Simulated assay, not measured.
Amino acid sequence: MTDATAPDAAAAADAGSAQHEAFRRKRDQSVRAPQGALALTTTAWISEPTTVEGVPGTWAPSPTGDGLQVTADASAGIVVDGQTVDGDVAVYSQSSMTPSSVRFDDRLTAFVIGPDFNGRCALRVWDAEAAVERGFTGISAFDYDPAWHLQGTFEAVEGGVAFEYGKSQGGTLRQALSPGRIRFERDGQQVELVALPDGDSLQIVFADATTGDESYDVGRFLFVRPRHDGTVDLDFNRAIVPPCAMSDQYNCPLPPAGNRLAFPIRAGEQRPTFAA
């Protein structure tokens, strides 16, 4: 009678490692993309007609409040939703039913975000060559460790779990509701986390004993999707650095107090690296 446990465990480890390598390749491609995290060069919040550095046109709040309005003649070469701008054109926000795309040339593209709490929208400009010009070489990461692929539980809470968090660019604390509590066990101790809703997933913003030393100063993100039975995969090998690690145009959430862990999680991304 043979013991299949060891071969099965080895096969599972190999499969996990292969899946992790595929995740790392996809992640690298994502941040290098023409509108990846490295490409964001401008976030211009607009409350009155103005110009935006580096791109043509006059930009103003949309009369309907669901985006911006750009004014330019055809010689500026601005293309909105496939049509060259010649006069006044509405540019709808990403949060609208019909978000607009903007192209300035072969390198520069844009879209609109907002409105924010003050009713303002912003033009976000992306440079497809930014990663190359900045000498981006990759994102350093801890070695893959299957021990950090944990099974946790998600407990939904009626009305949510209230918590506060800061933002990487400062300002007042923000109020948020986690739809429930995420728990996992570490060295015999129960760990409890809260998360921000992110579509059909949850975004865990956390810090640990590696933060600011072995990993990025602000903390890291982990996206999870609880199952209907209340279980949840917590694969910290897929923890990622926030986009503010790659562009100062992002204003990322900081880990709330309960998500600041005293132990090290030596799995997942550490920080972006650039050529000297």
Rank of each mutant, 00 (worst) to 15 (best):
R186D: 08
P253T: 13
F23D: 04
L68F: 08
D8S: 14
G258L: 13
A74R: 15
A207G: 13
E164T: 12
R266K: 15
A90M: 13
L202E: 07
Q151H: 04
W148A: 13
S140R: 15
R266D: 01
I46H: 03
G258C: 10
L177Q: 14
M246F: 01
A162Q: 12
A9K: 11
R174C: 08
C121F: 01
G152H: 12
R124D: 01
V241L: 05
A128R: 14
N259E: 09
Q169M: 10
A11E: 11
K167I: 06
T58G: 04
D116L: 14
P197D: 08
L193W: 02
S178D: 06
P242D: 07
Q19L: 13
Q69V: 15
L123A: 08
E53K: 14
D248K: 06
S140Q: 12
P61R: 13
R134S: 14
L222C: 03
T84R: 06
N237D: 02
W59C: 07
Q35Y: 02
S140D: 14
L123W: 02
A131P: 00
D200T: 13
L196W: 11
C121R: 03
D116G: 11
A162T: 11
R174P: 00
P255I: 09
L150E: 10
V55N: 04
F221Q: 01
I113R: 13
T41S: 11
M1S: 09
T210Y: 02
Q83T: 11
D217E: 11
Q249G: 13
V31E: 00
M1V: 09
T273G: 02
S75A: 15
S96D: 06
A10I: 14
P63R: 11
P264H: 10
T58C: 05
D208H: 04
V194E: 00
S30M: 10
A110N: 00
R174T: 07
A6E: 15
L150N: 12
R103D: 01
A209R: 04
N259Q: 12
Y216A: 03
G57N: 05
A141G: 05
R25F: 03
A37Q: 07
A12H: 08
T5C: 06
A195Y: 00
E192L: 04
Q29D: 15
A207I: 05
S47P: 04
Q203E: 13
A141F: 01
S168P: 01
E164Q: 14
S62E: 04
A128V: 04
Q203T: 10
C121A: 14
E133T: 15
R220G: 00
T137F: 09
Q94L: 11
D127I: 09
W45A: 10
T211V: 04
H228P: 03
T211K: 01
P61W: 07
A156I: 09
R238E: 02
A209K: 03
T50R: 09
D187E: 14
L150G: 12
G77Y: 04
T211R: 00
A262S: 15
A37D: 13
V52D: 06
D208P: 02
D14P: 01
T2C: 07
T51P: 03
E269M: 05
G114Y: 05
P256W: 12
T51R: 14
F236N: 00
D66P: 12
E214H: 02
V157S: 08
G159Y: 09
A74W: 03
Q19W: 07
A74P: 01
F274P: 00
A257I: 09
Q29W: 06
R134P: 00
